[in-house]
């Protein structure tokens, strides 16, 4: 990861896209300060309502996690504890962050379960994750994440492990929850369809760097960076008569052998000499948008 930056406003949905392994999940985990033991934030800041998360003590950070900022994960089966009832797992944030009695917490948890659309919550409350379907499990994850009304929800590929029909339901649920609570959502995904449906703004990442940012409309219909272009071209479109996919040649470089200069240059169709040696800056476009490519340096 190297020099990634992004902003999310209240009530905004930011889509973070990129190929698998480009550092999407790691950036999100570093915001939560939950990087695995072999990872460390060397430098950087994360401002949350004017408070720098990176400078908080571990204890203060625990008060932020699950209460101000919540996280939901890709695979709800492995992200839920197999030996605890789903009811307890939804109540848990209440028990951590608020002084509720068990009874009050249970009542609140049942309300949440109703809110995220779990039928007969009283019966589901005492069931274990393996008894539920994938969609139900993800609803449980969302209910647990929302329990303390966080102002930011980070959803790390929340629909990747689900059936397409369930995907749509979960996205709709996230949208309606945003309406109700005005929380900001960072939606990490590699599914451009999902982004175009729900995101307000889009951040494109490649090999541990952010390379393009703008409104969803702008980035998806008028992509600037050659990588974003390639990404969009490799999505099959129904309206095309001929199904010819145009994948980006090559694969993402490994962390130990990152190319100098622009990290995309070995795969870039319009790479110039400069791209091989110098790192491109962030060149602004309309509004807050920017792109990190020398092609747009003088625009």
């Amino acid at each position: 990861m190297d020099d990634v930056s992004f902003d999310v406003g209240e009530g905004e949905i930011l889509g973070v896209v990129g190929e698998s392994g480009c550092g999407k999940t790691m950036s999100m985990l570093s915001v939560m300060r939950l990087l695995p033991d072999n990872g460390r934030v060397l430098e950087g800041s994360a401002l949350f309502r004017g408070m720098d998360i990176m400078s908080l003590s571990e204890r203060e950070m625990c008060a932020v996690r699950g209460r101000r900022i919540s996280l939901i994960f890709q695979d709800p089966l492995s992200a839920l504890n197999p030996s605890m009832t789903v009811g307890y797992q939804i109540m848990e944030p209440f028990l951590i962050h608020r002084t509720l009695t068990k009874k009050e917490a249970k009542e609140a948890a049942l309300n949440l379960m109703r809110k995220v659309g779990i039928p007969s919550p009283e019966r589901r409350f005492s069931e274990y994750p393996h008894n539920l379907s994938g969609g139900m499990r993800q609803r449980i994850m969302i209910a647990a994440a929302l329990s303390c009304r966080p102002s930011l929800l980070i959803a790390d590929e929340p629909t990747t492990a689900l059936d397409v029909s369930i995907q749509a339901q979960i996205l709709e649920l996230l949208l309606s929850l945003r309406e109700d609570t005005n929380m900001a959502i960072i939606l990490v995904t590699h599914d451009l369809g999902v982004v175009s449906e729900v995101a307000d703004n889009v951040l494109v990442m490649y090999a541990g760097r952010d390379i393009e940012y703008g409104t969803a409309e702008e980035v998806l219909s008028r992509p600037k960076h050659p990588y974003t272009n390639g990404l969009l071209r490799s999505v099959p479109k129904l309206e095309d008569d001929v199904f010819m996919l145009d994948p980006i040649a090559g694969s993402i470089p490994r962390a130990c052998e990152m190319p100098d200069g622009c990290r995309f240059h070995p795969r870039c169709p319009s790479a110039a000499d400069m791209c091989r040696s110098e790192k491109p800056g962030r060149y602004p476009g309309s509004g807050n948008s920017y792109v990190s490519c020398f092609l747009y340096r003088n625009v």
Partner: peptide, 8 residues
């Protein structure tokens, strides 16, 4: 990780 993300 989920438990840590809840603030435990």
């Amino acid at each position: 990780r989920t438990a840590r993300a809840k603030g435990l």
